[in-house]
Each structure stands twice: as C-alpha cells, then as structure tokens.
Design a protein around this nucleic acid. Sequence first.
DNA 1: TATTATTTGTGAAGTAGTTCACAACAATTT
DNA 2: AAATTGTTGTGAACTACTTCACAAATAATA
Lengths: 216, 216
Amino acid sequence: MRITGKRISESTIHRLSLYFRSLGILEKEGYVTVSSKDLAQREKLTPAQVRKDLSFFGQFGTRGLGYPVVELRQQIAEILGINRKWNVALIGIGNVGSALVSFKEFIRQGFIIKLIFDNDQRKIGSFNKGIEVHDVTNLRQMLNKHNIELVIIAVPASVAQRIVDEVVDAGVKALLSFAPTNLRVPSNVTMRTVNMAIEMEHLSFHLTNENLYYTA
Amino acid sequence: MRITGKRISESTIHRLSLYFRSLGILEKEGYVTVSSKDLAQREKLTPAQVRKDLSFFGQFGTRGLGYPVVELRQQIAEILGINRKWNVALIGIGNVGSALVSFKEFIRQGFIIKLIFDNDQRKIGSFNKGIEVHDVTNLRQMLNKHNIELVIIAVPASVAQRIVDEVVDAGVKALLSFAPTNLRVPSNVTMRTVNMAIEMEHLSFHLTNENLYYTA
DNA sequence: TATTATTTGTGAAGTAGTTCACAACAATTT
DNA sequence: AAATTGTTGTGAACTACTTCACAAATAATA
C-alpha cells in the first residue's frame, strides 16, 4: 500500500491513464526518455500539471533529462493496478453488453471477462466470444466461486439497483454501470457510471450556448 | 443566447443533466414542487450546490416553497438544448456503433440518428434499425445535405483522426468519440470522449489503493 | 393580520486543483 | 573543469469550485 499522505484527485487518476497511453505510443516510437513538456503537449496539459501528478507517487524523473519512458509506463501501470489481471463479470448481454465483450482494449489491459449473466432464457447457455451466458439467478454464488473482483452492469435501469445490491452483497468492491439511473452503493464500494445520454447533453449544451462564457 | 457573465463549469452542466433526470422521476411521482434539499439528497449533493448551479441561469424557485418540478425540468431542458431534436450521424457500425443505434435514451432525448456510415462494403447498403448504412467516402456531402449537427465517432483508433478532420471540415461543431485515442479538433469544436478502458482503470486504481487517502 | 416556519439566492469564506517560479541537479558543450 | 543548458520537484501563488451563512421572501399557522 502506497502512503502519500496527500489527497489524490480523480482528475489526477484520469490523467495517469492518459499518460499511460501516451507513454505506450512514445515507447513504440522509440523514445527512451520524455520531458514533462513533451508529455504535456501530447495531452494538452501544462508541464507543471504532469510533474505535480507524478510527484504524488514518487520521483520518477531525472533533472535535465526527463522521465524514462518504459519505466514510467510500468510505474503508472502499477499505480493504476493494471500490471495484473482482474476477474470481471458482465451482467446483461444486450446491445451494450455485446459491445463490451468484443472490446479488445479490455483484454489488452488485463480486464478479463470471466462470466456473463442474463435473465433471458433464450440467451442463457449460449456463448459470446467463447464465454457462456449464465442465469442471473445464480449470481452471488458464481461471483464468489470465480473470484470476481469487478462487475460491469449493463442491464435495464428498472432492475439495476436490485442487481447492484446483490453484487455488493457478494463482496464485490468495484462496479462500472451503464444503466441510465441513479444507483446506491455503500461508501466502501466504488462505482462509476457511463451515461451516453449525458455526454450528448454536454454537446447540445455547447451547441446551444455557443457564445456563453464557460470554463474548460 | 443566454448571457450570464459568469463562468459555467463542466461540472455544473453535468449536474444539470442529473437534475433533469431526477425532475423527470419527481414529475412521475406526482411532486409539484421540490426543495434544493430534496433534489440534493437524490443526487448526493449539497443543497447549496443545487441552488448555486441553478442560479447561474436564473431564479427558478420560490422562497419558502422550492422549485416547480415541471417548469424547472423544462427550463433545464432549454438550457441543455434538449427541448428540440438534433440531427446525428453515426460513423462506424461495429460493436459500439450497433449498441448506440439501439440506445433508446438517445431517441427519447431528441438525438435522432439520421445517417450511418461505414467503410465495409458488406455493411454499406444494409439497414440498422431502419437506417441505411452509407459509404464513408461520401461523408462530407452527406453530412451537409442532411444538416447533421452532431457526429458520433465509433471507428477504430487508426482511422479516427482522419474521419474527425473530415467531419470538422464539413462544419460539424460537436463530436462524441468512442475511439480510444487522442484526437485533435479546433477550439471552436466541442468533442467529448468516452473511453471505457479508462473507466476500468479508475476502478482498478481504487481496488489497488483501497486505503489511500484520496478526494471525492 | 401577525407570527412562525421554510426555503431561496447569493456574497463571503473555505477548500481543492492548477500554474508559477525557482532552487537543485544532471547532461552537454566549450 | 568550468560554464551553459535543460529539466525535475515542489512550496507559494493563483484560480476555480464548493459550502457556509444569512437576509429576503413566501407560505403556513395562530
């Protein structure tokens, strides 16, 4: 466990993900070191922001030279917890669920979908990308049996809270939800929500209020 | 055009979307008015935050009583620009694209997918949810002809920037991208990016650094 | 009608996040 | 080997965002 004593904001974590990706590209391009200035430029940030973000977790750079690309990438992977595999379950194999199963980036990052659940008898027993679809009735015991650490919720809004409660009850501490509804989880559980309608609303806001004075 | 003279943060816009959804539920539940306290509770925010957010755009409430549910919802719809229909084009009808076409929330919010594009000859000419798939070669002229105001990018990372450039060139001012790569647009164009791998990395960060002292 | 209870709207205060600016240090050049 | 250049790491300053706190206004009650 890393002890920094300093608060880490969600924005910093988000930017670490961005740095991780840029460093992957830099590595492919053959760069050995990279300066905060270059990294900032690629992500449209300030060099100070990059240095500050990294400084929360240690001193990775060399003055006068910059950061070692391969090593920094590995360090960030460790910080983000993506230097290992995670057992993931997907609940709901509708349109969104199907797209997620095929999302190659997940596998590449070590997020391995081990189990798929649905409540539709026509889907149960079928296979998606080689993964069998299980009856959601057996949710809790299956999650435990397969040591699932991370669950993706891709079910209709109407049943989402019930499923979330069961998942939390099974001891899962991290959820990614695509259900367009407010879901409650205990404070020791992390849940992130992806709501594409809200993303669209940001865009329509900007189109509608083109000349409005707003911040980044 | 609304002139507030004050800066509106992206967080405020995001919360307006949340309020809009809560107000829809409140309306269904038969509430006539709602206090900032109640609204805040539903979204796990502070009452002051709710009032401050709304105050950027006008005075919608009545002291001692609260906000009129139906009217406030309509006002927020107007602010967000979702009191009308928007012509949307979807580029790339792979896994993600297919999921988006079926996403009912889009239609309900007035985001109408008018055109679908792909570069795969086997898909061109076929129909998805009643919408024909067009050859991406004709992108620019089709976008103009159909008055597309908003484009969703669901193509592989490798071709995303080229497509984005064409879309921008066609005069589109708002893009939603699902391509897991850094894309550049001019400053007068709004682009939002949904990257599910980054969402997963937030989760694995929290699982990995469970006891780390971090901010909301 | 007067009094009490609510709840908004907002300036002020407080907190969090970003950028500045420079000492410290490493690499390169002369 | 000294001087110059480049770049990090970080406290301080600044900016943005959130919460506080209360006057003002309305509704409910006596």
